[in-house]
Design a protein around this nucleic acid. Structure first.
Lengths: 119, 119
DNA sequence: AGCACTATGTATAACCT
DNA sequence: TAGGTTATACATAGTGC
């Protein structure tokens, strides 16, 4: 978006990608800030920063081994068929209630079992 | 950012705010899409859409009653002292591991208590 | 309400240091 | 590699249907 039009595809060149990542992340954060300010809503961006410090293989393994739970819950489920759709359908509170309910259920189970133990 | 410069403050005018919300949300989603594509990273934006369909009072109560757990965990904790800082410090995986660990601990407790009950 | 337009402000890719 | 500059592409506030 500046001196040249640029294809919207993965930037294979490492330094270039890193630069773009930094610049665009900064811009994105600013946009989120503005949106929250202008409309007084809650919003945040969750960005999984690229792992430039390790070898490609290790990078890959890390990527696979980590980011399981939250990624699944927040990224895939919420973004589902694309971020746009998810944005419209997504309600932060709804997800919060779901999580809370899960924890409540588990906690309840714990308490019930505790009582069983004592009786 | 177009015909006039606009102050970066809450837009009190409802229709205007709604329009801005829609336009900017769309733009934000596009930015997220581009970032994930260009850098092949995982990223998503979580936006709590404004509640225009209810009365101001109801709106307020809803806002208070809902969005507890996830908002706290994701928005306040992660964004902490500001989104910018959180962006830099934030690692999706780290949070995921935290959540996972919590669930694991609870599950472990449940299993232990189950054994106690049986013995 | 929602779309299309467009003048203008903003973000940023390529450079440069 | 990081930070600053600039030409250009993009986002969007205001507007009119």
């Amino acid at each position: 978006m500046s001196r040249k039009k640029m294809k919207l595809a993965y930037i294979t060149n490492d330094p270039k990608r890193k630069t773009t990542y930094k610049k665009r992340t900064k811009g994105l954060v600013k946009k989120v800030r503005e949106l929250t300010t202008l409309c007084e809503i809650e919003a945040c961006a969750i960005i999984h920063s690229p792992d430039f410090d390790s070898q490609p293989e290790l990078r890959k393994r890390r990527k696979e081994n980590r980011q399981k739970e939250l990624k699944k819950v927040m990224f895939q489920s919420l973004s589902g068929k694309g971020i746009l759709q998810s944005m419209n359908a997504m309600d932060l509170n709804e997800v919060g209630l779901l999580v809370k309910q899960n924890l409540k259920d588990i906690d309840k189970r714990v308490r019930e079992l505790s009582n069983e133990s004592r009786s």
